[in-house]
Design a protein around this nucleic acid. Structure first.
Length: 121
DNA sequence: TCCATGACGAGAT
DNA sequence: GATCTCGCCATGG
């Protein structure tokens, strides 16, 4: 579990970056999640920016992280510009059955995969 | 050591 | 209802 809630300055076994990557890798195919959801799951719902920032290095992580399944809270492909090509993210999603229109996930609430709701319990 | 930036989110105007 | 500003924390210069 990536739910390593670091607090009280406890020893950070896993970097925030690793935690984010781990959660993203757990996103099922054909589903999408949001930065806020990941941050929330990690216990830092207000640190959604950090999640996105860490994704900058996601392309250099192995195994590859399905960053294309991570969008902002409104289902907008905000990070598509960070892919090899701006259309790469959209194509990958559509390939997995996620319809994308105008750089935005169709039926986002329906495709939304909340780690806190799915991995929780 | 301090300042600036960032693949976001939510509240306020 | 749409637009703007602030906050949040981590990483880099």
């Amino acid at each position: 579990m990536a739910g390593k809630q670091v607090r009280d300055g406890a020893v950070q076994e896993r970097d925030f970056f690793q935690d984010v990557m781990d959660v993203v890798r757990q996103v099922p195919r054909g589903r999408v999640t949001s930065y806020g959801a990941i941050a929330n799951y990690l216990g830092a719902k207000r640190s959604s920016r950090i999640v996105g920032y860490c994704m900058n290095n996601a392309h250099a992580v192995r195994p590859k992280v399905p960053a294309h399944r991570v969008v902002n809270r409104i289902g907008l492909l905000t990070g598509k510009h960070h892919f090899a090509t701006p259309t790469r993210m959209q194509e990958l999603l559509q390939k997995e059955g996620v319809k994308v229109k105008d750089d935005r996930v169709v039926d986002f609430p329906k495709r939304f995969w909340d780690p806190m709701k799915e991995l929780r319990v």
